[in-house]
Nucleic acid binder design. Structure first.
Lengths: 348, 348
DNA sequence: CTGAAAGCGCTTACAG
DNA sequence: CTGAAAGCGCTTACAG
């Protein structure tokens, strides 16, 4: 407390810091001998103002250290220049990549990201989205498909552009950019079957995307007449340890697998570690495959076979689509399938 | 375009979706037979309103699906309930942990996080912070110390509570929670010297914190009369590959080290991979140490010796201090040193 | 316990 | 190219 007061009152390098309240548009106008409106215009539509005026405005702004109040601007213009982002957790690096893509995509247009984390909880999600909507974002980017009917309704009534991501669905709320998790699971199943594995297991969490990958794998196994009952579903938050423990449970259960598809690379890396610990050769004794193509996948020994997924690109494209929607521009296709790719390495 | 129009106009499960504009406070008041003020009060200070009134208000809110406009609220109350967070990049998982801590810490109080990423660029940082300040956040959390004088000035004039993090400094802007990167580097240097290593090298990036860790290491080497000139400074973004390449450069240069301290675990893991690739035994031929204690550090073979750092706790404490400051509560100590801890494992 | 008036700092039509 | 007036949707004193 004492520190802060001192900072503010003594000013230090800040001769103007004693002016308690920041300057407003009207202060800039007075300083430049103009009206608020002209200053506002000089800021938003510089070409609609004479060069001399523009000059005076910019000078006054610099001299006063004026920073426009965006809350007031939002209210008056009904444009917040905020994009709300709903993410299960930023601690998952693939989602961090998507957020980075969004951030890069909207930065140039002057938009800011309001971040909300649901922690994978549906009840938390509703409250969170309601709170975000309260800021009147110009658009909402949602990691995953919005399944909860009440939440769909909330977003619909907010009449705000929405992009769902990271999966495909027949009934998007509005825009959609992702890939088919079901197809990815199936493709990996077919790949493993093609490599000669017959006792193929699944490891994953409880989220929707893991469920889709699982059902894709099962479809491939069913089609080949193979047993699809081997699986370990983990309730833990995503971690290497969770992957290790899930694989351990599978190995210690009956009918051990000869290959395991992990719903995410983080789990798969944990699986690889468990194998090393047990001195099981990979892929000799057991094959390991993941999804995500994290940087570490290529660096491990054995290098991890996985499904490459367009994490960053999803964010980037979502940003572009949202900006087009906000500007009222036509959107060629409101649904974009960015696909995926099996990356064959050493572990499977 | 067509899709969205259809969604909005047909309504689907949304009978009220056709009401183009969302209900305002006055609509709720009218619906409940009250005035805006009473509704506002029922929302913010429920105990200052009769139970019957409260009931009617809540019912009207539910029936209309009212969501308060927080931009308007901010403007009128001069409280935005926004905390601006300035982070180099969310893609670095230790910073993601800090953001998670902040998020957890402010969630209960109804604050939201406005996220800005600088990408480690100082020019970008100034523009970014100015844009964030435009939202009139109630507080600013900054990853790292604010060094740029112009930026310090900007924050001072905004007269907003600020917490700097992830390092210690003699002249914090306001609040500070972190640990001494210099001391951490020195402690790791002393540890390595104590283990008998004599040709100790440093690998790190160009950011302030890496520089502090490096100078701590040098201080320890100087004190022991050891050569402190072995180092590889990388300009790449943080990645395993960057760590691999930096170590390769060091090994291929003259006077190869017998131990390397990497400024972050991500780089150290890359170093470990390069050793595996070159079949150099760790720590026999070369010792490897990192900083951060990422989950993977404990899971690798050999397990990584590192410095544990309170990434999550920094965010959590920063949130607490900021909330106290906002509420005008006294703060016991505006500077909090959370310390660090050497974690001895197998690699050094 | 409830309400009428003013105002937060901008932008939006509408004039000239 | 520039300006006077009204209003965005809330909250803040101030009354009663």
């Amino acid at each position: 407390m004492a520190d802060r007061d001192r900072d503010i009152e003594s000013g230090g390098t800040a001769p103007l810091a004693a002016d308690r309240k920041p300057p407003r548009l009207a202060d800039v106008a007075a300083h430049a001998g103009l009206t608020s409106m002209t200053v506002s215009r000089a800021l938003r539509q510089p070409d609609k103002v004479s060069p001399a005026t523009r000059e005076r405005v910019m000078q006054a702004i610099t001299e006063l250290g004026y920073i426009p109040d965006l809350a007031a601007s939002s209210l008056a213009s009904r444009r917040s220049r905020i994009i709300a982002v709903v993410v299960p957790t930023i601690a998952n690096s693939v989602f961090a990549d998507t957020v980075q893509g969004l951030s890069d995509g909207v930065a140039a247009a002057g938009y800011q990201l309001l971040l909300g984390q649901t922690g994978y909880s549906e009840t938390a999600e509703h409250a969170l989205v309601a709170a975000l909507i309260g800021r009147r974002p110009d658009a909402v980017a949602h990691i995953g498909i919005v399944r909860d009917p009440a939440l769909r309704e909330l977003l619909r009534r907010a009449a705000v552009p929405v992009v769902e991501t990271w999966d495909l669905t027949a009934e998007p709320l509005d825009l959609l950019v992702g890939f088919s998790n079901e197809a990815a699971g199936r493709a990996m199943g077919e790949y493993l079957i093609g490599r000669g594995y017959r006792r193929i297991a699944f490891v994953g969490g409880r989220d929707d995307r893991a469920a889709a990958r699982r059902s894709g794998l099962r479809a491939a196994l069913d089609a080949a007449g193979l047993d699809a009952s081997r699986e370990a579903i983990t309730d833990e938050p995503l971690s290497y340890g969770a992957g290790r423990r899930a694989l351990a449970a599978l190995l210690d259960g009956g009918g051990p697998p000869d290959a395991v598809f992990f719903a995410t690379d983080v789990l798969a890396v944990g699986g690889l570690m468990e194998c090393r610990r047990r001195k099981l050769s990979v892929p000799g004794r057991i094959a390991i495959a993941g999804l995500g193509d994290l940087e570490i996948a290529a660096e491990l020994t054995p290098a991890l076979t996985t499904v490459r997924v367009p994490s960053y690109e999803i964010g980037r494209r979502a940003a572009d689509m949202l900006l087009s929607r906000i500007e009222g521009e036509p959107i060629a296709s409101p649904v974009v399938d960015l696909g995926f790719e099996i990356v064959q390495r050493e572990s499977a």
